[in-house]
Amino acid sequence: MDAPVVVRARGITKCFGDVVALDGVELDVTAGRIHGLVGPNGAGKTTLLGLLLGLAVADEGRLEILGTPVGRAPAAPDGVAGFVDGPGLYPALTARQNLAALVALRGRGAPAAGIDDVLEQVGLTDVAGDRVRGFSLGMRQRLGLAAALLAKPRLLVLDEPANGLDPAGKNHVHGVLDRLAAEGTAVVLSSHRMDDLEALCTEVTILATGRVVFSGPPAKLSAENRELDYRLRTSDVVAARRLAGETRGLRLVDGGDARRDADVLVVRAPVPVLDELVARIVRADVAVRELAPVVSPLEAAFLALTGPREAGR
């Protein structure tokens, strides 16, 4: 059975004066998926996230969230939580007090067990009694995620959630998001970190100047972005270079890594040609010690599809 569609956007257009922030955007987000938004600064990512959170309304188009058509007044249906441009927090209050204040503003009692649970989920239990003014950027991001989790959202919307996180914090947040998706929550997040998006997302949408230039699984980008540069480290760089030169459809690239590392080649080829080269190297009894894209498929597609251009937020 197909997962239900949590967000359905059709022809969404949003302008700020003469600036077209979103131009006919189409977007589908299904339950249990993590959907990434990618784009250069000013591409419209924050504007789109704001629409999903009910902070603004579209000028044109149709938007449904959790099966409910979004009206002409800024509002989000129950079951939607998240933040854009960083979470709003009270710096003079502790982490626990911030969450208790949020629950009180929603008109409900403050369940201490629930607050403690979300603090544990995001790894802030040890600093729950500390004032937020002393928190790092990454700690504030995690507290913002904890605040969103209090609402037990069916749609979680996050703007740069990994901003300021150290590797341990990033892994912690990734684990939380993966678990939420496994439990059926739809997650929409923006990020400039391609490694985060590739590790987390089952689908990505690339925006450029307010328009969708790609939407689909990250794996599809490898097929559409035919040639990539790959770092190839072997036990015999001379033999590898000779075999690469004899492989049709492949080019040797004078990359910086190759100049620094004597045993590294940088080659440009589509995946089938690269597979052929690796097979030939192995048959020649040369060990392949490393093979990795110099730029990830997602980042390569991002650069190819967006390019240097002026953009409005």
Rank of each mutant, 00 (worst) to 15 (best):
G54K: 05
E64I: 04
L66P: 03
G32V: 05
V84G: 02
V20K: 11
Y90P: 02
L66Q: 07
G61H: 10
V29E: 01
V84W: 01
G24Y: 04
L51S: 03
E64A: 14
G88M: 03
P74A: 06
V38Y: 08
G88H: 01
H35C: 08
D18V: 04
I34Q: 10
R33A: 15
V84N: 01
G71E: 13
A43N: 13
A21E: 04
L27Y: 05
R62M: 01
L37I: 14
A81P: 00
A31N: 10
D78T: 12
E64R: 14
P87D: 00
L49F: 03
N41S: 14
F83K: 00
L48Y: 11
R72F: 00
L53R: 07
V19E: 06
G71R: 14
G24H: 11
T47C: 07
Y90W: 12
V29K: 02
I65D: 09
T30R: 15
L66Y: 06
G42P: 10
G36L: 09
A75V: 06
E60S: 13
G67N: 07
L49K: 07
V29T: 11
T30N: 06
V25Y: 07
L49T: 12
G86H: 04
A31G: 13
G71F: 08
A21R: 04
A76Q: 01
T47I: 12
L55N: 11
V29Q: 03
A56V: 08
P87R: 01
A21N: 03
A75P: 00
D28K: 05
E60K: 14
A92E: 14
G79I: 00
G67P: 12
A81L: 03
A73M: 04
A73H: 15
P40I: 08
G24V: 02
T68D: 11
V20R: 15
A73Q: 14
G86Y: 00
L37W: 09
V38F: 15
G88K: 07
A73I: 09
V57L: 13
A58V: 04
D18A: 14
D85H: 05
A75E: 11
L22E: 07
D59A: 11
I65P: 11
D85V: 00
G39E: 09
G61C: 10
G39Q: 08
A58G: 11
L27M: 13
G67A: 08
G32Y: 12
L48P: 07
R33K: 14
G54H: 06
V25F: 05
H35M: 02
G82S: 00
G42Y: 11
D78H: 13
L89F: 09
L53Y: 09
V20D: 00
L55C: 06
G67Y: 08
A81M: 00
F83S: 01
L89Q: 05
V19C: 02
R62G: 11
T68M: 09
V70Q: 12
G36W: 08
E64K: 04
G36F: 11
I65R: 10
A43G: 14
A58M: 06
V80K: 03
R33Q: 15
T47G: 05
D59S: 08
G67F: 03
G71W: 05
G67M: 09
L51W: 02
P77W: 03
V29N: 06
A21D: 03
D78C: 01
D28Q: 12
